[in-house]
Computed example of a mutant assay.
Amino acid sequence: MAIVKTLIRTPWFWGLVGIALLLTVNTLKDPTYLAIGINSTTGLLAGNVLDILRVSAPIIMIALGMTFVIATKGIDLSVGSIMAVGGAAAMETLRAVDGQSPFGAMFIAIAVALLIGALLGVINGLLVAVVGLQPFISTLVMMLAARGIARVITGGQNTNATNAPFREISNGQILGLPTSFVLAIAIVVVVSLIMRRTALGLMIESIGVNPAASRLAGIRPRPILITVYVLSAVLAATGGLFTVSEVMTVDVSGTGYQMELDAILAVVIGGTSLAGGKFSILGSTIGALLIATLNKTVLFLGVSAAATPAFKAIVIVLLVLLQSERVRNYVLRLGRRRSRKEVVA
């Protein structure tokens, strides 16, 4: 019973419940939904579950970066646009270095995309930490500016490129799992180790809980805030690389469009409070998987485009209600009443 109570009070547990319920609904419609087979064309494993893991990779990246921003009582509305910038930079770089070693061209494209993302993150950090603008305003400005930068990079056109190793980032597999998902999980593990094995994670949380007390304790908020926004932008650019590598095309208007909303939802579902303070990397990762499963479910069930936002809103509201302390206490009280009735009987 103690384990059940602990799980009920854990926000990310309800994310797992939501994933299980969505998969159950899909399986009821098609009993073969969870089946995994061999693609006759590529010879790789194929199935809906693998598709969910693949599309979850960019969401995991932007949710991971958003986690630390929100932990400082901030918000980053520019991650979707920075995804487009990263994808645009990669595609244009691959076109520019076409003819060189495929692996060399891939690494150059990745480096350019991440560097541009880091520069945009520095600007966000400076506007918030040094200039003193509200994170909502500064990142909203960057959201608009970055989308414009993506258009400038590509000349306003959707850009495609050819590079076999780069394409394998999303279309390849490692031990039967999508390469992009494996890379995303590896990045999550590395970032988790950095945050929990060094003082950085603790300083981020302290700034979110009480900035004034953090200063008195000798913590300098400005470098931490700049670091957080740079990390968010670099991870967003990485998400953009995962997205464009799937089709080897960047859509300057569509790539990363409204992805910042998915990132915020994933973080909140995972248990990180918008009020700042403690964060949950595991929770944000599970939240991202839930969002990916929800997006896939919407398409699988054939929900119309007009009704899609309402359908997603209903699912997310129900999940947030399950995370509510009042609702959890109500569930526990029902459990106690049933236990007493069984004893009496």
Score class of each variant (00 low, 15 high):
V191P: 08
S192V: 09
L193V: 09
L193N: 04
I194G: 15
M195S: 09
M195V: 13
M195E: 14
M195I: 12
R196E: 15
T198D: 09
L202E: 15
M203N: 14
I204F: 13
E205R: 04
S206G: 11
G208C: 12
V209F: 10
V209E: 12
V209C: 10
V209T: 13
P211G: 11
A212F: 08
A212M: 05
A212G: 02
A213Q: 11
S214M: 08
L216G: 09
A217N: 05
G218W: 06
G218T: 02
G218H: 07
G218I: 02
I219V: 12
P221W: 01
R222A: 14
L225S: 10
I226T: 02
I226N: 11
T227Q: 09
V228K: 10
V228M: 06
V230R: 01
V230P: 03
V230M: 04
L231W: 02
L231Y: 04
L231R: 01
S232P: 11
S232M: 01
A233D: 06
A233S: 13
V234A: 13
V234N: 10
L235D: 11
A237F: 06
A237P: 02
T238F: 10
T238E: 11
G240F: 06
G240N: 07
L241S: 06
F242K: 00
F242Y: 05
T243F: 08
V244R: 03
E246W: 09
E246D: 06
V247K: 03
T249G: 01
T249W: 02
T249M: 03
V250L: 01
D251H: 04
V252P: 05
S253L: 12
T255F: 01
T255G: 01
G256M: 01
Y257R: 14
Q258F: 10
Q258R: 10
M259Y: 09
M259W: 03
M259C: 01
M259K: 02
E260R: 09
E260Y: 09
E260A: 06
L261M: 06
D262S: 15
D262C: 05
I264M: 07
I264S: 08
V268N: 12
V268Y: 07
G271D: 14
T272W: 04
L274D: 03
G276S: 09
G277S: 07
F279H: 07
S280R: 14
S280Q: 15
I281R: 15
L282M: 14
L282S: 12
L282K: 13
G283S: 13
T285Q: 07
T285E: 07
I286A: 05
G287P: 12
L289N: 03
L289W: 04
L290C: 05
L290T: 12
I291D: 00
I291M: 12
A292H: 02
T293A: 00
N295E: 00
K296V: 02
K296W: 06
V298P: 00
L299W: 04
L299I: 08
L301N: 13
L301I: 11
